[in-house]
Design a protein around this nucleic acid. Sequence first.
DNA 1: CGAGATCGTATAGGTTGCTAAACGAATGAT
DNA 2: ATCATTCGTTTAGCAACCTATACGATCTCG
Lengths: 168, 168
Amino acid sequence: MTSVTSTGRVLLGEHRNSPGLMLALLGHEAMRRLRDAHTANGLTPRQFHVLGLLHDRGPLAQTDLATETDTAASVLVTQLNPLEAEGLVTRTRDPRDRRRHLVVLTDAGQQRLRDAAAAQQEVEDDLFRSLTDTQRSQLTQLLVLVRDDLTDGNEHCGTPASLDGKTS
Amino acid sequence: MTSVTSTGRVLLGEHRNSPGLMLALLGHEAMRRLRDAHTANGLTPRQFHVLGLLHDRGPLAQTDLATETDTAASVLVTQLNPLEAEGLVTRTRDPRDRRRHLVVLTDAGQQRLRDAAAAQQEVEDDLFRSLTDTQRSQLTQLLVLVRDDLTDGNEHCGTPASLDGKTS
DNA sequence: CGAGATCGTATAGGTTGCTAAACGAATGAT
DNA sequence: ATCATTCGTTTAGCAACCTATACGATCTCG
C-alpha cells in the first residue's frame, strides 16, 4: 500500500499524508481563517460564496443558488436574509414565474464583495505562503478540477460506489 | 487582477476560483464524506487522525498529541476516552514523569485503523476521481507543503501579518 | 517544605452548519 | 376548478467542534 513519489521526496502511504484527510483538516483551518477575515466585513464564508457567485454568474433564482452552493433551500434563505437586510442583494419576483425570487447583487454588494475579497486575499497569502506562484496556480487548478467534477457529478447521478454505512 | 493560466483553460480571478475558499468548501465536503465512512467504523475523522498519528509516530504523551493535531488538551481528552473504552489505545502513566499519560496504539487499534483506512481510501478515490495519478500526487504534495508550513509556523511564531479584526 | 508550573481531566456554554417538517403562494395539467 | 408540484419561507432541533474555566495530581526549583 505504501508508495513513493517519483521525486522520492515525500513518503505517501503514511496515514498523516492522506490527501483526503489533509484536505478536510486544512479546509477546516482555512474556513476558520476565512471566517475571521470575513466577519470583519459582516459576512460568513458561505455568504461570501453567494456574493461571489452572483458576481460571476449574474442574477439567479434562489433554487439555482441553492443548487450551485449545494445548500438546502431552507438554509439558503437564512444566509440571504441578512444580505438583503444590509442592501447587498435584492430579491425581486420573476415576472415570468412569480414563484421565483431573482437575487441580484447591488452596487453596495459589489463594493462589499471587493472589500471582503481583499481580506480573503490576505488570508490566502498567509495560508499558501510556503508555495511558489507556480505551485499556488497548480493547487488552484487541481482544486478547480475536483470541485467542478463534484458539482457536476453530484447533480447528474448518485453516488457511484460504496456507501452503505448510515448511523441513524 | 484577473489572470489566465498558460493552458488558457481555467480563468483565475473569478471569485469562485479562489483557492482559499475552494479549500475551505472542498474540505468541508471531504470532512462530511470522511465522517460518513468513518462512523461505520465507530470513529470520527479526528479520531482517525489521532490513530494515524500514533501509528506513524509511535507512543505519544497527550500534550504531544494535542500539539500535533492542533487541538486543546481538554478536547483531546474527549476524543481519547471512547478510543480507550473500545480498547484501541491504552493510557499508561509515564514512569519518568508520572503526570504524563503515554498513549499507545493497541493491536485492536491497528486493525481498526486498517479498516478505517480502507474506507477512507474509497472516499478519496471518489473525491479525486477526476484527477490523474500524477495530478493526485501533485495535490498531495502541495497539501503536505501547506500543512507542514502551517504546523511548523504556528508553533514557532505568531501570525506574521495582518489579522486585526476580532469580533469579541 | 512550599510556590509555581505542567499534565490530564471534567464541565458548561456557544457557534456553525445541517435536517426535517410544515406552510402560503404561484404554477401547470387535466 | 381542482389537484399536484414547485418556490420560498419559517421554525425546531440535532450534531460536531471549539473555548473557557476550574480542579486534582505531579513535577521542579528555591
